[in-house]
Structure formats: C-alpha cells, structure tokens
C-alpha cells in the first residue's frame, strides 16, 4: 500500500457501491462500537447506504464495494478514482468480481434473453470485473463479506498513516491459533482453508464446516496439491473441484485458471 500524503484535518470518506449485495457496506454500519468514534475522526461525506445527503468530492478515502458490470459503473469508478486520494476496494465483488463474475463463463446474451422481456434495454459489460481491472487501487480488503476488525485496521492505519497489518497466509494458521480441530483431518471434510487467505477468524471450521474460500487465494496457494488430494482421497469429482474454486473468488487468479484447468479436463 502506498502511504498517502497527509490527509485533511478531518479526512472525508466516500463509500461507493457497484454490483454487489451491500453486505460489505453493512459491515461498516455494524461497527457498532467504533462507528461514533469513526464519525468523530472523519467526515462521512458520501455513503448512500447510511445517509441520503451526498456531499460532493474530492474525498480523502474512498471505500469501494461491488464489481464493475455495466458501462455506467465503469464511468462512475473512473470518476471515483479522480475524486479520492486513497481508494480501497472492499469485499470479494470489488477485489475478485464476486459471485456475479460466474457469468463470465456463461453466454451473457443468452442470459439476457432468458430473463428480461426486453433484453435490448439491458446495458451490461461482457464481464463482471474487480475494481482493479479498471482503475488503480491503493489497497484491497478481501472477504465475503469483509471482516469488521480488518476494516477498522485499514481505516486506523490510513488515519495514522501507517501500513495496515493484515495476513496473507493460509486460513489454517488463524484456525490453529484459535484451537479449532482441523476439519480435514478430524472429519474428512474437504476444506479450502489451506489455499485460502486468513482474515475471517476461521468462521466455517469453527462450526465444523470446510472453508468456502470467501477470502480468496492465500499468498502461494498449492491448489494442485490440494486438488489432487481431494480427488484421490476424498472422492471430490473434477466438476466439484470447479464449483469449489468458482464461488466468491472464482474470477481471481490463481483460482480462475485452476478452475479452467479442472473444467477442461472433463470436456477435453
């Protein structure tokens, strides 16, 4: 992350929404203990999910939720980049394309015809993309949704002009620190934890489920090794491997290419 120059006396915050479910914006509103403190430190200038009044830019910090899926969104994100000193994409949609990026593997015109009575009225881009596919992003906060603690860490770091400290290693490390028994070893449950970035607090393993990979690929994920183990030892089929990799972060490398590889081997 580039440490920006000094922010304004009371930095101005903008929160943008693109194609998304609003869940990451709700994580900001759910910062119940910190929200008043946050409002004291920064001016919440543009945050339509929270207040109707929208103050014009420029802004010091922009948080971006959602993927870029329409021409209008493309125009808006380019304007947002011009308006914000620091732009942070938050959540799987903004950092990876999100669940809607699954359409990138499908025929979008067929979808339009099937769903809308007047498909010609639908203006959409060929693919749903992460924000970084369009503009320079200063920092990416992973997760579906983002983790509240991590959000506070990023905002605190920006306000203190220090680097945020967020892990990029595997979920396993967070999971074992928390004393959760490995679901792969003790329950034979396929789990994406070993190839997924930590940050959620090992939410699913805590409830005896395998990790779904909401936080995207860890720093050096050995997908091939895990995939081979799943197929050989856990009876996970190739189509199932494709589905496991193509969820919230399926359009993010190296999940994307790996899922393509598994898919191409079924239909050679």
């Amino acid at each position: 992350m580039n440490i920006p120059g000094p922010l304004s006396q009371k930095p101005r915050l903008a929160v943008y929404k693109f194609s998304s479910c609003d869940g990451c914006q709700l994580q900001i509103l759910e910062l119940e203990d910190e929200l008043l403190e946050l409002a004291g430190e920064i001016e919440i200038a543009y945050f339509l999910e929270a207040r109707r009044q929208a103050l014009p830019g420029p802004y010091d910090i922009g948080l971006v939720e959602g993927s870029i899926s329409t021409p209008a969104e493309e125009r808006l994100i380019r304007q947002a980049r011009k308006d914000c000193k620091v732009l942070v994409s938050i959540g799987a949609c903004a950092t990876a394309g999100g669940i809607q990026a699954l359409r990138n593997w499908a025929d979008i015109d067929a979808y339009k015809k099937r769903i809308y009575p007047r498909p010609e009225w639908i203006a959409t881009l060929d693919v749903a993309s992460p924000i970084a596919g369009y503009v320079y992003i200063d920092f990416e906060l992973r997760g579906c949704p983002v983790n509240k603690r991590q959000l506070v860490e990023v905002l605190s770091a920006l306000l203190a002009q220090r680097r945020p400290h967020l892990p990029t290693y595997s979920l396993c490390i967070e999971c074992k620190r928390a004393g959760i028994p490995c679901v792969m070893v003790a329950r034979k449950t396929p789990c994406l934890g070993p190839i997924t970035q930590a940050g959620c607090g090992a939410l699913c393993p805590k409830f005896n489920r395998g990790c779904y990979g909401c936080f995207g690929p860890a720093e050096t994920p050995n997908i091939a090794a895990l995939g081979r183990f799943f197929q050989e030892e856990r009876n996970v089929s190739r189509p199932a491997m494709v589905r496991m990799l193509r969820s919230f972060n399926g359009y993010l490398e190296p999940f994307k290419t790996s899922s393509d590889d598994y898919e191409q081997c079924i239909q050679p």
């Binding site: 403190e37 605190s156 595997s170 396993c172 050995n222 090794a225």
Partner: peptide, 26 residues
C-alpha cells in the same frame, strides 16, 4: 500446501510475530 499446520501443532515450534496496532483516534 505450505498451510503451516505442522508448525502450529508442533509442541516445540516457537516462532512468533509481533504486531503493533493503533485505534481510530490514534
């Protein structure tokens, strides 16, 4: 997998990291 499980469960692995954090008000 480089997941680190072996080091977490090892009774003698002792490596640690020290992390500083600040709050919103600094």
């Amino acid at each position: 997998l480089a997941c680190g499980n072996c080091t977490m469960v090892c009774p003698t692995c002792f490596c640690y990291n020290v992390v500083d954090s600040t709050d919103l008000k600094c």
